[in-house]
Structure formats: C-alpha cells, structure tokens
C-alpha cells in the first residue's frame, strides 16, 4: 500500500508538486495522468526516493519512506522508465538479473529467475539471453525493462511513461501484456502517463494532475461520467468521452439472451467492449449483432438501443482478463 499525505516538492522557487494526497491500496493499479511538466514524474520519483520530497509524508505499508535506507528501498521497488535505461554494455540476461545480483542471490537462482521472466514476457531465452540492448527493437527492449523491474519480485512497481516512445501497435501490445501480467501478479502499480487511453485501459484509479496539483481522482468510470472541469474533460477526449466510456465495459455484461427472431448476420465475441461492438454495427450497417463465445457459438444478442441505454449506467469491471 502506498499513501501520500499532503506531499509537496519545490525546485528552487518553482513548486513542482503542491500538496497532493492519494492512496494506492495493495494490488491496485494507479495511473498519474497529466500534460508534461505537471509534476507526475516527480511524484513517482519521490516514492522510491530518487527525489527527496519536501513537505508532507509518503508511506509504504504504513512506514514512512524517509525512514528507509534509500538503496534497500529501491531494491524492493520495481522501476521502469521511458528510455528503458537498459545498460548497453550488459546482455539481456545480465540486465534482467541486475537487482537479484545486487541482493546477492545465488547464481543458479538468478539464472532460473531470469529464464522464468524471459519466458513470461515472451522473450525466448535462446534467442535473446545473449543479445545486447542495441540489437533489440523498442518493444523488446521495454519488455526487458519490465522483466528487469520484476526480477526480485517486488510488491511495488513504478513505471514512468514506459510505453511513451513506442509506436502505436507495439504500445498496444505491451499494454495488453502489462494488463495480463497485472491480472496474474497483482502488484501495487503506479504508472505515469500522458496518454489517457492507456490510463483508462490499465488503471483502477486515476489521478489527474495539473501544475503540481491534483485536479481530480477516482475510478475511470467516475471520471468519465463526471469530469471535474474542462481540463479533465479535454484530457478524456471531450466529445469522444462517450466512446471511451463504452470501451470500459464488455459485451457479455450487457447482452440479451437469444431471442426468437433470426440471429443477426454480424457476430461479435463476448469479450469485445461495447465500443468495439458499436464499431461493428457502424461497419456492417446493422442495429443488432449476435454475441458468440470463444468457440464461435451464439450466446446472446445486443441491439443498438440496448447498447446506447446501458453504456452509461453500469460500472463494469471486466476489463482485460
């Protein structure tokens, strides 16, 4: 559990972070969102003491971070940064094993852990273990970065715009990888991003920051339903807000049982979001789609009318499993 109470930080005369408070319960995913220079990275770096905080108090599992030895503290916290920060003179395997080596694990255990993580992150050991960072694509390099952060199995994961430098397709892939990972590992994650879609997709709790202050925080749905002001509204995409909200819930939570009428021609899997279902309707010029399960068996149907009515009501939580 990470708690920030009235935390401030100033660099010289400028107040970078101004009296912010938020809590990330154990196993939850929190995203700090805002435009560049709003103090979100500084906030993140104060948690693992890469930057010392000014006023206020930051606690991890009830203990103030200022009381920890910073080196020991950081070894307990996974840390991923935008430029991957891989050590260019070390092979992939050695990079991933950094923290276990710092913690003086036995060599065999390190190797085992590295291989396990590489498998887990879809990096075949034979092909990648001995490669150097410059031989990797952006996506591969960042997967190594994530593996390195997870190496010593920390409870807490801090990610500073991890996918900011990647192309949209790779970013999309890594986001779903991270979602899968989180569904399995249940780390306490703080993610800094300027990409609202990324935050909506991954986080349970959003903290929107501007000029060092928190403008609004809450669940994705809460923000989408009631943006506190125009700034949050514009971050959420303004007119696109409705669509983004529709992308938070899945078809299977809203479909109706199969009716007596002939099933519709267009089919959508039940794992699709309402937004994707709507897109299918627009594409196929129809008002009704048949919902199918994994093995392509019809299990229900969804009409445009129902979709429009329900997209706003529910707080579905079936994201990305």
């Amino acid at each position: 559990m990470i708690e920030l109470h009235n935390v401030s930080k100033s660099f010289g005369d400028t107040l970078a972070v101004d009296d912010i408070s938020f809590t990330v319960p154990k196993g939850r995913f929190c995203a700090l969102v805002g435009t560049s220079g709003c103090g979100k990275s500084t906030t993140l770096r104060m948690i693992n003491r890469l930057t010392a905080h000014g006023g206020g108090e930051i606690t991890l599992d009830g203990q103030v971070v200022a009381a920890y030895n910073p080196v020991q503290l950081r070894r307990r916290i996974g840390y991923v940064i935008q430029d991957t920060g891989l050590f260019p003179h070390w092979s992939v395997a050695r990079n991933i094993g950094t923290v276990p080596r710092l913690l003086k694990w036995p060599v065999d255990q390190i190797r085992e852990r590295v291989e396990e993580l590489m498998q887990f992150l879809d990096l075949p050991v034979d092909a990648f273990a001995h490669k150097y960072p410059h031989q990797l694509s952006g996506g591969q390099a960042q997967r190594v970065g994530v593996a390195r952060a997870l190496a010593a199995d920390p409870d807490i994961l801090l990610m500073d715009e991890p996918f900011g430098a990647l192309d949209p397709i790779t970013r999309e892939k890594l986001q779903s990888m991270l979602a899968r990972l989180q569904a399995r590992l249940h780390k306490t994650v703080v993610l800094v991003t300027h990409d609202m879609d990324e935050a909506l997709r991954l986080a349970d709790h959003l903290v929107v920051m501007r000029d060092g202050k928190i403008v609004q925080q809450g669940s994705p749905l809460a923000l989408l339903q009631k943006p506190a002001n125009d700034f949050v509204d514009s971050l959420l995409g303004g007119l696109e807000r409705g669509l983004k909200q529709a992308s938070l819930t899945r078809v299977r939570d809203h479909m109706a049982p199969l009716g007596p009428t002939l099933p519709a021609q267009s089919r959508v899997p039940d794992t699709y979001t309402l937004r994707q279902a709507l897109s299918v309707m627009l594409r196929d010029h129809c008002e009704r789609v048949t919902v199918v399960d994994k093995s392509d068996v019809p299990v229900g149907e969804l009409s445009l009318r129902k979709l429009v009515k329900e997209a706003h009501a529910e707080q579905g939580h079936g994201r990305e499993s």
Binding site: L50, Q72, R76, Y79, I81, T84, G85, L86, F87, P88
Partner: peptide
Amino acid sequence: VSPAALDAARGMGMRPAQCFWQVRLPL
C-alpha cells in the same frame, strides 16, 4: 554516459560506488 542508464542504475538500488564501477566507468 546515457542519463537513462544512470537513472535506472540508481532506481534499481545501486549504491553510488556500484553506479560508478558497474555502469558509469564501463560505459
């Protein structure tokens, strides 16, 4: 020496001396 590598080294929990001998000097 790439600032990202140094930032990562510190963030991983390397002591200043480890940062120097393991990352800064070799690079």
